[in-house]
Design a protein around this nucleic acid. Structure first.
Lengths: 325, 325
DNA sequence: TTGTAAGCGTTATCAG
DNA sequence: CTGATAACGCTTACAA
């Protein structure tokens, strides 16, 4: 592990000259700079990040925090974030687990992008109070060191609701997300608004938690109570897949007896048969926007909270109710 | 951003006393320690990682490097790695991109787990030569600072081959992975061995790259050449899904006309209809093992390279060839 | 153009 | 039990 001292000794110059040479300062002759660089290369010199970070008071690393690594959900999102950051010379690291929260307050990263329920909002506000920069994608937080980029949940849920109402559905199950989840709450709120405008609708809420197994459970419950066509709005695709999978084991037909619509348009959604109706949005763009917001926050540029637009994807999993005369 | 100096000033003690107190040394009275801790908490003191890393010459962070973030492939694997590491007080960060390679030589991480084709083996060997600790999961590298944990590719490919031969198949397509991929090469080798033992087999290789779109292309080619039942062994599930998806748009029936088997048992494999036959293994265990190997490497404990065992998962995508008399 | 030296925030050795 | 002080490796005024 060579350091600038070693190089200085070998080159017969002082460490500051080495530092200047390696950082391309014009304060040093082209010849000595070349000589120093040659020696550095030969010694396989790599600057020590800890020392440099300590001096510069920044790491040029941004952390993205996820509740977990599973689910095909995050691929494009992370890709988007990475693109945004790399362009500006920042590196991206992805973290998941309570103990890695420390990376932010300990200043191992210059900022954080949060999509992680294991952070409490109090915790985030405290970090923000200490001057740490944060972008949240999964909650609503007002602080000068926090920016937010949200999905347009209200629009998405409303699109889904209007679609199924248009298809004639009047009996509706809604499988909710984790209690306390921002996205879940916003979606439920929009659902209730739409239901409120359609007084002839029967509305049944099933508590879920965004996981596939919650979907399976919901599927069981719905099957047991089955008494004619019903629409099921799962607040994410993962749970819709759970229901789908469960219904395959019964003789209830999806898109005929039970009608399904999800949210997120995850990859598997297109492989189900019939195709899962769902709400789509650009996960990549969501990520790009989040990274941009964080970089602006770090640079001290003020920004407005932003929204990601959503669209309806129709699928045979959500069919029309036959009109009964 | 309070530091120990601030605390020392407020507590009326020296910085070394503060350091001892905060690190729970017995060299300091319980009362002063308590007083110092109280002040630290009040100031929201958090030790600066850069300074600590610089002094300690370690970061207690391990980096996992992936070629990309997409694909539902990595969830369980990362979960396994994380569990292994967290137990030993290490944090996990996940990286992807050429520029983040720097984290290893710059000593921002104490070691790396590689599942990333963007690292050349030469690059890894150079890091190893500099004393950096690495575990590789995607290649074969012999160095005292590198450990390896591989899938039993040979066994997996052989299982797949024996299965399809047993079902009567004599015409075989193999869709390969990325050229130069260790897993792909090992699997092809096993395939060729089995083919060699069955001289009546017709063997056609289609170059792929482990992506779904490569599968779609392969599907097209196979369809064009179609002249009776054939088995297709895709060297990963992702490509098998590509073929599956393409065949759905044709009137060729999977498991009847074209018989498919993949490798990995990714999540979507169970949603295809008919179910995709594939080779399964515990991705979580693979991760746990990799983290254990890395920690041992760091601790200076010698270990043997390890293998992950694989099993065959049958599926209706791979049916029997009707016996023609 | 190059060298000296201070400082980033910790930890740890050595005196007191 | 507590306090100076050096050291970790680097950057950067300031001096020569």
């Amino acid at each position: 592990m060579a350091n600038i001292k070693d190089i200085a000794k070998l080159a017969g110059v002082s460490i500051s000259t080495v530092s200047y040479a390696l950082n391309g300062s014009s304060k040093v002759t082209a010849v000595t700079a070349a000589r120093i660089k040659a020696i550095a290369k030969e010694l396989h010199y790599v600057p020590n990040a800890a020392a440099r970070n300590l001096k510069r008071q920044e790491t040029k690393i941004i952390g993205v925090f996820l509740t977990n690594f599973s689910g095909s959900f995050y691929g494009d999102l992370l890709q988007g974030i990475k693109e945004g950051l790399n362009q500006s010379g920042y590196d991206l690291i992805v973290c998941s687990s309570k103990q890695s929260h420390r990376l932010l307050p300990q200043r191992m990263i210059d900022g954080a992008i949060i999509l992680d329920e294991t952070f409490s909002s109090e915790e985030l506000l405290e970090y923000a109070n200490q001057g740490h920069k944060v972008v949240v994608m999964d909650r609503d937080l007002d602080h000068k060191n926090i920016n937010q980029v949200h999905l347009d949940n209200k629009a998405g849920a409303t699109l889904a609701m209007e679609h199924l109402i248009e298809l004639g559905h009047r009996k509706l199950y809604v499988v909710t997300g984790t209690i306390g989840s921002f996205d879940s709450r916003q979606r439920i709120q929009a659902v209730k608004q739409t239901v409120g405008r359609n007084p002839d609708m029967q509305y049944i809420e099933i508590a879920g938690d965004f996981t596939k197994s919650a979907g399976v459970l919901a599927g069981k419950q719905i099957t047991q109570e089955y008494s004619g066509p019903a629409a099921v709005f799962c607040l994410n695709d993962e749970m819709a897949i759970g229901i789908y999978e469960y219904l395959l084991t019964t003789n209830i037909r999806i898109g005929v007896d039970i009608h399904l619509i999800g949210f997120d348009n995850i990859e598997v959604a297109q492989y189900t048969q019939p195709r899962l109706a769902t709400i789509d949005y650009s996960k990549r763009k969501w990520g790009v926007l989040a990274s941009e917001q964080l970089l602006k926050l770090i640079a001290g540029i003020e920004v407005e909270p932003e929204h990601i637009y959503v669209t309806l994807i129709k699928g045979k999993s959500m069919g029309a109710v036959p009109i009964i005369n």
